[in-house]
């Protein structure tokens, strides 16, 4: 009897409930083609070129054998010759995240708020805000690298130099701590479009009556932002910050294009470290080991993200 089944939920097994929630085995059959495809392009390389590779000494030279070395690659990073770079890289990556994400957030939110107002030629401005996101990261990074040199075309350098004294030799990109900021600017310019689009959609979905009643209630612009806009965007902000945090850690293009990880290792964030190890030092085993540790480290972040994604707005 249907009505009895409905109230029986608590007694059913986990398997039953999964089937109930996600359909029957039929549903899984429907998923199978994409699962197989994903298996080939994601899981296979991850296991064979990732996990297995991290236990070998591996180079691309076909004349060399690639012996199994056990945990040696991990030991290299954790306790051996790579430890200093490993720790430094983690520190710089965290710093990078801590600066880039809030910076990105503020620029994107400001852009979304401004372009939600009535402006002349608003569609044009809205489109222009996405120019960065439409540009290839390497092109954007290289362009910033050029603009950050001490030269007449070094727009960013000349602007920063008005407030701080940045060494002329090597410009922003080859002097610490400026190189770090050089990467940050390029990264934020290239990437804020994503958050901007999401925020703009979020801001537009706020009923305008809320702002009107707040005006009647006597709330000024700051309080309207604080009490209406911000609470409304709360879940959106959490989500995009999670996504951006995860997707920024491993990204190589922009730091590499702007500074090549330099000066020395100053902007060698985790992704860059893996890239350098693999494709400059040709030590693919060690690169794979670092990559695996990095993957493990972001699993909690991903779980957190999935939970915020599936959580209902209360």
């Amino acid at each position: 009897m249907a009505t009895i089944d409905r109230f029986d939920r608590g007694d059913r097994s986990l398997g039953d409930r999964i089937l109930d929630e996600y359909g029957s085995l039929q549903g899984i059959l429907f998923l199978l083609p994409s699962l197989l495809l994903l298996g080939f392009i994601v899981f296979y390389p991850m296991i064979f070129n990732g996990i297995l590779l991290s236990f070998r000494q591996f180079t691309l030279d076909p004349s060399l054998v690639n012996p199994w070395v056990g945990l040696e690659n991990y030991q290299y990073w954790l306790f051996g010759g790579g430890q200093a770079l490993f720790l430094f890289s983690i520190k710089m990556t965290l710093l990078y995240e801590l600066v880039v994400i809030p910076f990105d957030l503020m620029v994107a939110l400001a852009a979304a708020l401004v372009l939600n107002e009535t402006l002349p030629a608003r569609p044009l401005w809205r489109g222009l805000m996405l120019a960065g996101y439409a540009a290839p990261p390497v092109a954007a990074g290289l362009t910033f690298a050029v603009m950050e040199q001490a030269a007449s075309y070094g727009v960013v350098y000349n602007f920063l130099n008005m407030f701080f004294s940045v060494p002329a030799s090597g410009g922003i990109t080859s002097n610490s701590p400026w190189a770090f900021w050089g990467v940050v600017f390029a990264k934020v310019w290239r990437d804020f479009g994503f958050m901007y689009v999401v925020f703009l959609a979020g801001v537009q979905s706020i009923p305008k009556e809320l702002y009107e009643i707040a005006k009647v209630d006597g709330a000024g612009p700051v309080r309207r932002f604080r009490h209406i806009t911000l609470p409304h965007l709360r879940t959106i902000i959490v989500t995009v910050v999670m996504i951006r945090t995860i997707f920024t850690i491993g990204k190589v293009e922009i730091p590499w294009a702007v500074t090549q990880g330099g000066p020395v290792n100053y902007t060698t964030f985790l992704g860059v470290a893996i890239f350098k190890q693999g494709f400059l030092n040709w030590s693919l085993g060690r690169a794979a080991a670092l990559g695996m540790m990095f993957s493990l480290a972001i699993i909690p972040l991903i779980i957190l993200w999935v939970r915020t994604e599936t959580e209902d707005y209360d």
């Binding site: 009556e209 809320l210 009107e212 009643i213 005006k215 009647v216 409304h232 709360r234």
Partner: peptide, 27 residues
């Protein structure tokens, strides 16, 4: 609006979703 000492009710009520009833009324 704030200097007119009026109060308003909208068709969709326009209650602040992030505030409790008390906070809405006290705002």
């Amino acid at each position: 609006p704030k200097d007119r000492e009026i109060s308003m009710v909208f068709q969709n009520y326009a209650l602040y979703p992030s505030m409790t009833v008390y906070e809405n009324m006290a705002f």
